[in-house]
Design a binder for these strands. Structure first.
Length: 809
DNA sequence: TGTGTTATCAACCCT
DNA sequence: TGATAACACA
């Protein structure tokens, strides 16, 4: 027992010896070997306290960068050290990636073989697993398909069409999001029809048939043996409420529950946690109300705000020391979040260096903005000898990535875009996946519709419609109808040629099913891509796009091979197709990240939650964009945008940049923009303006960049269509540009109302509000405000140095 | 039935 | 602008 002799710490439980033993053998025989106690010493007092409270309910309010992941990992390790069986611990995280990383870290402390037994993952993946096990109780097959958003929306579109409803009134995306929010609030179809208020609300929104759509949608999913994302939570709730013995089983199993990012849980998730923790009440939730950014998809910030009321004797812990960022960044972020009214008391501070001020930069166009970011990254990387992996560009919407990408590419700076159209959403990938889905669940109508005639097999629209009718009539899936064509074919008007084609298809799928019993995911997929003719089809195509698609399929296959290899190392899994598909269905964009590339990261602020980078560029700091124009109607919405900005800013370790432009292409049009109010909200002492607000850089009315951008957009056209003459700015754009030459400088600090020819009684025109008369001017310099009565917008008070006004003669 | 072109429509954040 | 549905045509 040479290992034990190395241990110098006084009190060690046998368990930690045991874990240490495994750890020592498994990882490093020469080791500097550590015990759980050693790790505890790495925590500060505030972090250690929640780790050491073994039982009971507790909430850890963790400021940005305060080491909450450490607390969670060490708490789990400590529980195991105290004799809690890994099988009895459930840890729910926000992303799969977070779960994987945490598991890895725990394995380093307690040993791989024990960590493996932890239940750790996102709500969706953990309960998908449980549902697979218990599906029959709810009438679902245990090989149920998980529909993604596209699948769900496609079903809804079909329902709307079937019911002969006006698709302009019943917009499928809107319908989907309404249904989704019902599900997240646990309003089932039955509950919906039992609640006149809801029906009335939908009627008011001109969608009186919403309930019927909802019902039909659920029926279709059920028949297809499919659950959508929201079902994974809704059905779990159903399972736990309807079957007390099942509830008891999982309560007994998950004696210790930990929930990360608790501020972003929705009602459905909240109830699951409540139910599971009800018996033992060993519940630890971690979160930061200041970082709650998912209200738009049903997250309820009240879950964290009210946690103390939900359990007896809740201990509240606060992590307030930030280890990530400079004093400047922390203080700036604090000055922002203070503006929010609904929040828990907490003071984030740091012992780190003062650091550089946050740099604010203004440009003329979004193209300029991209070029600024690119050259700044280039210079900073050179000057500080940093790798490109130290940089992140964060934006509010995916559409903004384009200008940044263009600029980075021109400078040959390597980058990686996260999110957007993810790998698994590409057509060719979805096609392969659809075949694989059909193998496991032939009732999966969305998958069937997708591939039954791709590659072309001569099965057309008419045939499909006839099959749909028959499927509805017999209450069977299309696959089953095809199988039974010989018996019912007569009434279907499907000729024998078509019948043959259909049956060839089902026979092919069935042959795959047979193979699936002996081969792993990778082998099946390779066989499928060959046998179905998918690759042959793409090879025929021959275009660069077609070749890229083949490469993507190859990448998918490589990914599957890796997956199978990885699963082999874990004893309890086999790398089966079923396991792979579940992974894919619930994968997020971050999950594909290997993290080993030295590239600039481009992503939305939402995606950046939980990450950190030395240098962060927050671009598009403009009104209507950040804060988003769609989220400025209520105080709650605006506060969420502010929290989002808080999240963005607190990603930065050393240096943050805020950039905005004066005009930007949006929706294909050049529109003008004003700087975001969030820049103003930061205490000025933390900011440094790179484009001094006093300096008036002369810009010609028609900026060269504008032409450049217009020209580039033309170059992007794949096929230069014949004869269309090159277009400069349209007459309308020119008119707008002329009109918009601001009378009041957009950033002039020494603004003087007289110089701008503004006085009480002057008639002016505003870009958005139109014509109006100045009623009153108040304040001096940068703070000069005017009260203007707009003909269409009513009385508004505008800060003149930002308002773009035109004097009307 | 398949293909190429035109018209229309939507446009954030995401498991 | 770009994605996709609808449409015209071979």
């Amino acid at each position: 027992m040479f290992i034990i002799s190395e241990i110098s710490t006084g009190e060690i439980s046998t368990k930690s010896l045991f874990f240490g033993f495994i750890f020592g053998i498994g990882f490093n025989v020469h080791f500097s070997f550590k015990t759980v106690q050693d790790y505890l010493e790495q925590l500060n007092d505030a972090q250690r306290a929640p780790v050491l409270q073994k039982d009971g309910a507790m909430i850890v309010i963790a400021g940005a960068g305060s080491g909450k992941t450490r607390v969670l990992t060490y708490r789990i390790a400590y529980l195991m050290d105290q004799g809690v069986d890994a099988f009895n611990i459930l840890a729910l995280t926000f992303t799969n990636k977070a779960a994987r990383e945490m598991k890895k870290r725990i394995a380093q402390i307690v040993g791989n073989s024990e960590a493996k037994n932890l239940w750790m993952g996102t709500f969706h993946s953990v309960f998908a697993k449980i549902l697979r096990f218990e599906a029959d109780k709810l009438g679902y097959p245990n090989n149920f398909t998980i529909y993604d958003t596209q699948d769900s929306q496609s079903v809804i579109r079909a329902v709307i069409k079937e019911m002969n409803l006006d698709k302009d009134v019943y917009k499928y995306k809107q319908v989907y999001s309404r249904i989704s929010s019902y599900k997240n609030s646990l309003i089932t179809v039955k509950a919906y029809f039992g609640n006149p208020e809801l029906q009335e609300a939908d009627a008011m929104a001109k969608m009186p048939r919403l309930g019927d759509i909802y019902k039909s949608y659920c029926d279709k999913c059920f028949k297809a043996g499919a659950m959508d994302f929201d079902d994974l939570l809704l059905k779990t709730n159903e399972l736990l409420t309807r079957f007390p013995e099942v509830l008891a089983k999982y309560q007994n199993r998950f004696r210790y529950i930990l929930v990360d990012e608790y501020q972003d849980t929705n009602h459905s998730q909240y109830l699951i946690v409540r139910a599971l923790s009800d018996r033992f009440q060993n519940i630890c939730v971690v979160g930061d109300d200041a970082q709650s950014i998912y209200a738009f998809r049903g997250a309820n910030i009240n879950n964290i705000l009210n946690f103390q009321k939900d359990y007896d004797n809740v201990n509240v812990y606060r992590l307030e020391q930030n280890y990530r960022s400079t004093k400047n960044i922390v203080s700036a972020a604090n000055s922002i979040i203070e503006k929010n009214k609904t929040r828990l008391e907490k003071v984030v501070w740091t012992a780190n260096d003062e650091g550089a001020k946050i740099k604010v930069n203004r440009t003329m166009t979004d193209g300029d903005e991209g070029r600024f970011v690119a050259s700044n990254i280039f210079e900073t990387a050179m000057n500080n000898q940093s790798g490109y992996g130290d940089f992140a560009v964060l934006y509010r919407t995916n559409a903004q990535s384009r200008a940044i990408e263009d600029a980075l590419r021109k400078k040959d700076i390597p980058y990686r875009i996260y999110g957007g159209l993810s790998f698994y959403q590409r057509k060719e990938i979805k096609d392969v996946i659809a075949y694989l889905r059909l193998i496991l669940n032939p009732k999966d109508e969305e998958a069937l519709k997708r591939v039954i005639n791709y590659p072309a097999r001569g099965i057309g629209q008419t045939t499909m419609e006839r099959l749909t009718v028959a499927a509805n009539h017999y209450g069977r899936s299309m696959f089953e109808v095809i199988k039974a064509l010989d018996k019912i074919g007569g009434n279907l008007k499907i000729n024998s040629g078509t019948k043959n084609k259909l049956q060839n298809f089902t026979t092919m799928i069935e042959s795959f099913q047979v193979l699936n019993q002996t081969y792993n995911a990778f082998e099946i997929a390779e066989h499928v891509t060959k046998k179905t003719g998918l690759v042959t089809e793409l090879k025929k195509d021959g275009t660069p796009e077609g070749i890229a698609r083949i490469e993507n399929i190859e990448e998918l296959l490589n990914g599957m091979r890796d997956f199978v290899e990885e699963q082999k190392e874990l004893a309890d899994t086999s790398g089966s197709l079923a396991e792979f598909l579940e992974d894919v269905a619930l994968a997020t964009d971050l999950d594909n990240d290997k993290g080993d590339e030295d590239r600039v990261a481009l992503m939305t602020v939402h995606l950046a939650k939980g990450l950190e980078f030395p240098y962060v560029y927050i671009v598009g700091m403009e009104e209507e964009l950040f804060p988003s124009g769609m989220s400025m109607n209520t105080r709650a919405e605006l506060e969420e945008e502010r929290r989002l900005f808080y999240v963005a800013l607190t990603r930065a370790e050393k240096q943050a940049y805020l950039t905005y432009t004066q005009s930007r292409y949006r929706w294909g049009k050049l529109i003008d923009a004003e700087p975001s109010r969030f820049i103003e909200e930061i205490d000025e002492s933390f900011l440094e303006y790179l484009t001094p607000v006093t300096e008036q850089r002369y810009k010609p009315l028609i900026d060269a960049d504008i032409f450049e951008d217009v020209d580039r957009s033309k170059l992007r056209l794949r096929k230069p269509t014949s004869g269309t003459p090159p277009k400069g700015p349209t007459e309308e754009q020119l008119r707008k540009l002329r009109r918009l030459k601001p009378v009041t400088s957009s950033t002039n600090k020494n603004f003087n109302a007289k110089d701008a020819n503004l006085s009480e009684g002057t008639w002016v025109e505003h870009v958005r509000f139109g014509k109006g008369k100045i009623m009153k001017i108040e304040g001096v310099g940068a703070d000069t405000k005017a009260e203007i009565n707009f003909e269409n917008g009513g009385l508004k008070k505008l800060l003149l140095r930002f308002a773009k006004l035109n004097v009307l003669e």
